[in-house]
Design a protein around this nucleic acid. Structure first.
Lengths: 334, 334
DNA sequence: TTGACACATGTAACCGGTTTCATCAACTTA
DNA sequence: TAAGTTGATGAAACCGGTTACATGTGTCAA
C-alpha cells in the first residue's frame, strides 16, 4: 500500500538521502552555495523541491544563536506618532535582515514587563522600549537575559539604557517660546496623563520661566480628549489667547471643538501642537507645531539595535533635534 | 586563576548538575512543576537563579514545534484603520499566548511575498494578510510551508484562504444610498488607487444603479490626498452636492480643504466617509460614515488563526456587517 | 613520479531543550 | 507479608539543523 496519509514533513536528512549526499552538503547548499559543485547543488535543490522541504527556523536558531527578530514595546498603536515610528523601524530593521515583533503596553509598566518577558521568551534578540519609566523588573529581566535594549522618544545620556530620542522639555519650550514671542501671555496647556509618562512630564517641565501664565488641562491623548479639554478651557472665566497642546492629536481635537464653538483659529485663539504628525499639515487650519523626527528615530533605533545584536556594539545615546514648524494656527493675540 | 571572563551562558545541564538532579527534572520544573517534589523544585529554582539561567526559545521550539508567534502583513501603519486592527489583533493573540510580528507591504504583492517569506523563515506559525489580491508565489509559499493563513478586510467565502472581513461593495453602497436617500443626485467619489487594491475596487463596484451621477477622483490615501481631491472637485464646472470618500482619512482631508475654501459642510456640500476611524466622531463637523468593525475583525482574526495553529481547525469565512453612522457632515442638498 | 594543495564531500559531534520509558522507594491493600 | 500502586526521578533518544574535522580526488609544479 502507498503511504499517502502520514505526510510527515521532510527534514534535512530526508533531503540528503533523496539527493544521495550528506546532510553537510545540503546544509552547504543553503548557506554557502558556491562551495558546492554546480551539479551536486542542482541535485540537492531538486530534492528540496520534490520533498517540498522548508527549513526549520528553530533548528537554525539553536545553532546560530540568532532568531533574527527584535521586539518593540510601545504604549499604543492608536496614536499615529507610534505607528509612524514603528513603520520606519520595521523598514530599517529589514535592511539588517531583522523582523519586528510589536507589543503594546497601554502605558503600563506592569504590562510592559509582562510583554517584554514574553518577547524574550519567544526569542527576541533585542528590545526597543519607549521612554525611561520602567519597572525594576524590566531591568532585571534585561540584565538576566543579557538582551540588548534601547529606549526611545527620550534623550538622556545618563540613563541605564542607551537612549535615542529628543529633549522633550526643549521641544515643549520651543512651542511656548513661539507663543510668547507672538505676545501671548495667557496660555492653556493641554496634555495627556502624567502617570507613568515621562515624556509628558518632561514636556511640562520644559514650560517654565517665560512670563506667560499657564493653565494646565489634563486629558486623555485622543481627539476626544482634545475636544473635552477645549470645552473646559472655554468655560474658564478668562479665555487664554492661545492653547498649547503637548501632542498633535490633542491639538486636532481642540481645533475641532473650537470650530464647533464658532471660534476662529488663529484670529480668536491660537493653537500650537507638538509632534508634527503627517496629517497636521493638512487639517484646517494647518497646524503650527514642533516637529519631532520620529522617522529618523525609527532609522536610528533600528541601526542601533541591529549593530548591538550583530556586532555587540553598544550604541551611543543619540539626540534628535526638534524644530518649530510654522503654519497657520498661530498668530499674535488680538 | 579564576575563570571570570568567559561567562558562557548556562544551559539546562549546567542547572541540572548545579542542583544535583537530571535534566529531565529541570525540564519538569519548567513545564510541569507539580510533578516535582517541593524540595527538589526549590533546589532547582535556586540553581536556575544563581546561574541566571534563561531558557532558549529555539531549543524549546525545536521540540514543541511551536514558536508562539504569527505574522501579519498590512499595507501600511500610517492609516489608522490598520493600526487599530493590529492593535486588537495583538491583544487578542496575547490571550492565546501568541505574539505578533508585523510587516508592511506598501500595497505591493511583491513586497508582500518577500516579507511573507521572511516571516515564515523566522518561524511564524501562521500568517494574516490583507485583502484577496496576492502573488501566486504567496500561495505557493503557504502551500509548501504548510502554514495557516487567513485574509482579512474582505469577505469572500469562495476565496482560497478563509476570509474574515466585510462586504466592501455593500459598505460603499450603504454610503451611497444614504446620500441618494437625502436627495443627492450629483456625487463626487474620492478613492485611493485601484492598483492591487481589491478593497478599493470592490467599494467602487458597490456604487452602481442608484440614479445618481458619479464622478470619480482617484488620489493617494492620506489627508493630503483628500485635500488634493477636494481641490479637483471644486474646479469642476458643476459642483456635486455631495462627496463620498471611500476612506475616512480621505474624508478628513476633504473636510479640511472645503473648510479652507470657505465651504460649509453640510450646508454647502455633504461629505460621507467609510471606515469610521475612532477620531471621525471628533473632527469638525462630526463625520457621517460607514462603520467597519475592524476591532471585531481583529478579535476574530486572532481567534481564527489561533484555533488553526493550535488545533488545526480551519476557520470558516466570517462576515462582519458594516453599518451607517449618522453624524453631522451630511444633509439634504440645498 | 611524487608531494603539495585546492576543492568537493562525508562523518559525527553538537546546540539546548523535551519526552519516553525504566527504575526504585514508599505506600496500600488483601 | 506479598503483590499492586503511586510518585519522584534519571538515562538516553530525539528534534533538525550547523560545523569542525577527516577523507578522497584531481591538478600542477618540481
Amino acid at each position: 500500500m502507498s503511504k499517502t496519509q502520514p505526510q510527515k514533513r521532510a527534514n534535512l536528512r530526508d533531503v540528503a538521502s533523496a539527493a544521495g549526499v550528506s546532510v553537510a552538503t545540503v546544509s552547504r547548499v543553503m548557506n554557502a552555495p558556491d562551495t558546492v559543485a554546480e551539479k551536486t547543488r542542482k541535485r540537492v535543490e531538486d530534492a528540496m523541491n520534490s520533498l517540498r522541504w522548508v527549513p526549520s527556523a528553530a533548528a537554525r536558531a539553536i545553532n546560530t544563536g540568532r532568531t533574527r527578530f527584535v521586539g518593540a514595546l510601545v504604549p499604543t498603536l492608536d496614536n499615529a506618532i507610534f505607528a509612524r515610528f514603528l513603520s520606519k523601524l520595521e523598514n530599517q530593521l529589514n535592511t539588517h535582515r531583522l523582523s519586528l515583533v510589536v507589543a503594546t503596553t497601554d502605558g503600563s509598566p506592569d504590562v510592559e514587563t509582562e510583554k517584554a518577558k514574553t518577547l524574550i521568551d519567544i526569542g527576541a534578540e533585542g528590545l526597543i522600549v519607549s521612554g525611561i519609566t520602567h519597572d525594576q523588573a524590566l531591568y532585571d529581566l534585561l540584565e538576566r537575559s543579557q538582551r540588548p535594549a534601547i529606549a526611545t522618544s527620550y534623550y538622556d545620556p545618563g540613563f541605564a539604557l542607551p537612549t535615542i530620542g529628543y529633549d522633550n522639555a526643549a521641544a515643549a519650550a520651543l512651542a511656548l517660546e513661539h507663543l510668547t514671542s507672538l505676545g501671548h501671555r495667557q496660555v492653556a496647556v493641554v496634555h495627556g496623563p502624567r502617570t507613568n509618562n515621562d515624556r509628558t512630564r518632561a514636556r511640562l517641565d520644559g514650560l517654565t520661566g517665560t512670563g506667560a501664565v499657564l493653565q494646565l488641562f489634563e486629558t486623555e491623548i485622543s481627539l476626544a480628549g482634545g475636544c473635552t479639554a477645549a470645552r473646559a478651557i472655554l468655560q474658564e472665566p478668562q479665555h487664554p489667547t492661545a492653547i498649547l497642546c503637548l501632542s498633535d492629536v490633542l491639538a486636532s481635537g481642540v481645533l475641532a471643538e473650537l470650530h464647533r464653538q464658532d471660534l476662529i483659529v488663529p484670529e480668536d485663539i491660537s493653537v500650537i501642537g507638538l509632534d508634527d504628525l503627517p496629517g497636521s499639515a493638512h487639517i484646517y487650519p494647518e497646524l503650527t507645531t514642533v516637529h519631532l523626527p520620529v522617522a529618523r528615530m525609527g532609522l536610528a533605533a533600528a541601526d542601533a539595535i541591529a549593530g548591538w545584536v550583530e556586532t555587540q556594539t553598544v550604541p551611543e545615546p543619540f539626540l534628535l533635534e526638534p524644530s518649530l514648524v510654522l503654519r497657520r494656527s498661530t498668530a499674535r493675540p488680538s
